[in-house]
Design a binder for these strands. Structure first.
Lengths: 164, 164
DNA sequence: ATAATTTGTTAGACTCGACTAACAAATTAA
DNA sequence: TTAATTTGTTAGTCGAGTCTAACAAATTAT
């Protein structure tokens, strides 16, 4: 089979179609154009390309749908996106807008391996028994703000967590 | 002044020129072509574009040099690259080759803010008082391999570090 | 010093992904 | 049910970034 890597652009289109399907049920050329901030003829061209690859279904003046394979790819992009947003916003505490913007770029260029590792890393931190924010991240917050490390006062901390 | 964002491609050229300057002292069209796996006419076109932007100095049949401004930009790309390699390879323990490849893509798309945060995050982890690998990363290694969390045995650990 | 090789350049073509202008079809309002 | 509006399409253009083919200049070897 042909396993050609899609361009960032084409991945964006798939992602948009998936998002609009979820949001509106039906997907029109204009919706895609608006969501991606491109003109309608650009969407048309993209749909033609994606149709040729059997990733979307679209006939003249009709609505747009993902094929089974297209849906798989779209969901992959989506999950890379969500992972990055989580990492940037929730773990590193970067503001949501910037996290979104960066995720929109990075989602296209990451390796499978890095995706897996980062996913696990997030999972590891988010399932941390700490009540709100994992202690080592709290310590990072402190370090980021002050440039200083907290004193290590093992045993004195209510959670028993150390400065790391 | 004109603060046009450079394309990934142009950033790659700047980065390559900087690297070759360090490595060889002198930079030739062929060296760049080889390093970036493109043909020489592509390098020529790029050099023309970068010259127009006053980022490189290059006259017919001469060697290639970065201008002051070009050097600044090249170093910025470099440091984004190095930061990612560090994060992926040293922190997340992703193999060096993959870390390099991913860094080469991500270095072009990251925001200033995310760069700063990640840099600090790495710094925070690498200046951790632990002897080899920060304890929470050791715990992550364990979690990644086994899918399980280490038991929390506060006080019994030689370092006083908790499971986080 | 000349020949062979390497290096650099030019010209021209191609792909990708966007755009505008013009028009056609479908939908909504009167 | 027309008219107005919205939506979709086609055709053609453009810029970025790559390529090949052909040639010119510089360098190295004989």
């Amino acid at each position: 089979m042909e396993k050609k890597k899609l361009s960032s652009s084409m991945e964006d289109y798939l992602e948009a179609i998936l998002a609009l399907t979820k949001k509106n049920g039906i997907v029109r050329v204009s919706d895609i154009a608006q969501l991606l901030s491109v003109r309608k003829p650009s969407v048309n061209a993209a749909l033609e390309a994606l149709s040729k690859k059997k990733l979307v279904l679209h006939k003249r003046y009709g609505d747009v749908n993902l094929t089974k394979e297209g849906k798989v790819l779209a969901r992959n992009v989506q999950s890379r996106h969500d992972m990055f947003v989580k990492f940037l916003n929730e773990i590193l505490d970067i503001d949501f807008k910037t996290a979104q913007e960066d995720a929109c770029k990075m989602e296209h260029v990451i390796s499978h391996q890095t995706f897996n590792k980062l996913t696990k890393f997030i999972e590891f931190l988010e399932t941390c028994p700490d009540q709100d924010r994992p202690y080592c991240l709290q310590n990072f917050d402190y370090y980021y703000k002050t440039g200083r490390r907290r004193k290590c006062e093992t045993g004195k901390m209510k959670t028993g967590h150390n400065q790391m």
